[in-house]
Design a binder for these strands. Structure first.
Lengths: 141, 141
DNA sequence: ATTAGTGCAAAGGATTTGCATAAAG
DNA sequence: CTTTATGCAAATCCTTTGCACTAAT
């Protein structure tokens, strides 16, 4: 429903990191390969699992450090959702909402256009941002 | 913007608990006095602070146990919001959304009517519930 | 040499758990 | 007596921190 950023090559990742003022170490590039591309709302633990298979010996602290750096650089967004204890990381930088499939646990991006939300609060309220979580199920096509 | 449940007397609380199949112990009634009435989205820690002044010697475990029981009984709802590590407890049982005042940290209830949200997803998506968090600031009247 | 980045293990906060004691019927 | 609730401390989960070590200028 929303457009996912297309995958980046390691070379492109390096460029992205540099452009954001982040020193593109091997560890950081590795994490980005997962977290900026393939991953779908991974937790730090998910990242660690991937990393263990693709970049042995990386420490959990480095995973957390890198994720924090990426968030601070605006390349990733933190997602704290009610159904999960852990923080999830979102590589979709477009404004969007989320749909949680309660049967599968899948978390899908939702285009705000499809939600038609028009706050009509008193003028005393100035809204800076809106977060929406839809919970439900999907029919098999 | 939304109607808060009116406060209950200890006697009424006892009745409410019994009706929900909860043994109305002194500790539980005490917690309910705060959490079903005066409290505004308290965390377990907030509850503990209140309890320490109004029911000395109650253990933190009892606070957590009781909150869990109240949630399971449907007398309270859990609220996990992005701005707070801790779970907050909501005694407003009506469907509602939230507004977070980013200046004061205050969390206000918002009537869904004031948000005008009409999801228009494909029919494959069946929505069971909607959570909305508005972030912003309020003008001084 | 200096600086930045990494790994490891310990610490931290929020919540849960296990178990012995206390309260209630 | 028997059951249930409570208190306390230890354990757990996720995340951060401190610090020594390595890598790269």
């Amino acid at each position: 429903m929303a457009i996912k950023p297309s995958c980046l090559s390691p070379h492109q990742i390096e460029a992205v990191l540099k452009r954001s003022g982040i020193n593109p170490t091997a560890q950081r590039i590795a994490i980005c390969r997962f977290v900026l591309c393939d991953a779908e709302h991974p937790s730090a633990e998910d990242v660690k699992v991937w990393v263990d298979q693709n970049f042995p010996k990386m420490s959990l602290a480095t995973v957390y450090n890198t994720l924090k750096i990426l968030v601070e650089a605006g390349l990733l967004r933190e997602l704290r959702l009610p159904h999960s204890e852990a923080v999830l990381y979102d590589n979709n930088l477009n404004a969007h909402y989320h749909f949680l499939d309660e049967e599968t646990g899948e978390l899908l991006d939702v285009d705000p256009v499809d939600v038609r939300l028009e706050p009509a609060l008193s003028e005393a309220y100035q809204i800076h941002s809106v977060e929406v979580l839809l919970r439900g199920t999907r029919n098999p096509a």
